[in-house]
Each structure stands twice: as C-alpha cells, then as structure tokens.
Amino acid sequence: MSYNEKVLDHYENPRNVGSLDKMDAQVGTGMVGAPACGDVMKLQIRVSADGIIDDAKFKTFGCGSAIAASSLVTEWVKGKSIDEALAIKNKEIADELALPPVKIHCSVLAEDAIKSAVADYRSKQSQQAKGV
C-alpha cells in the first residue's frame, strides 16, 4: 500500500492536533464518524468577533488518509469566514490529497466535520442571543 506524499506529510507531521475549550461560546465542535466504521473525526473551530475562524484543532481516530484530511481542513479553514469554510467541498480535499476511490469517504467525513462544527457554533450563538 503506497500513500501519496501529501498524505504521508500530514500523517507524519499533523497540523493543529489538539482540543479547544468546547464550553467556549466562540468554539464550535463537530464530531463525525463511528468507531465501528474505523473513522471518528473531531474538528473544532474558534470564531473571532468579526466572524473569522482564527483557530482550528482536530483529533482523529482513523486511517492515514482520514488523519491527513482532517489535518488539511484545519489549515484550510483558518482565516476563512464561516461561509467560506462551508464552501469547502470533499472533492477539493480528495483532489489535494490525491485520495484513491476507497479513501474518498475520508474527504466526505472531513467536509461533514466542518459542517458539524459550524452547526455547533451557530447553535451556541443563537442560544446566547436568546440569552439562554
């Protein structure tokens, strides 16, 4: 089994591994996948007051491609607005990492992780707005 160089690079030197405070109202946490399927991705984003993602962290249980895909999206979302982050499509991730067909689900999962993190952030914000 041979991996693409970019996958190996992200796997061996993963960017932004770690956790942000999930209780922080500025932080959105997305957790997707299932252990039985062999992939669980946790992606966290922190959104600044002006709506820009200023930090992102991940933790992933999964194959080298899943780790690489999550590492890559943490790099990509940083500095983007929420809407720009939501525009990232799995195909771009798969193309960047040259994922083979059996690994496409890793890029799908990474896209889902962004959506899930944003949804969590938005629900926290709306709850705050309601003064909950």
């Binding site: 957790m31 669980v40 933790k59 992933t60 249980f61």
Partner: peptide
C-alpha cells in the same frame, strides 16, 4: 492515542 478523540 494523543491524536484520537476516542482516547480523549
């Protein structure tokens, strides 16, 4: 494990 959300 340091990288694993399950381990966390």
């Amino acid at each position: 494990r340091e990288m694993s959300p399950l381990w966390e």
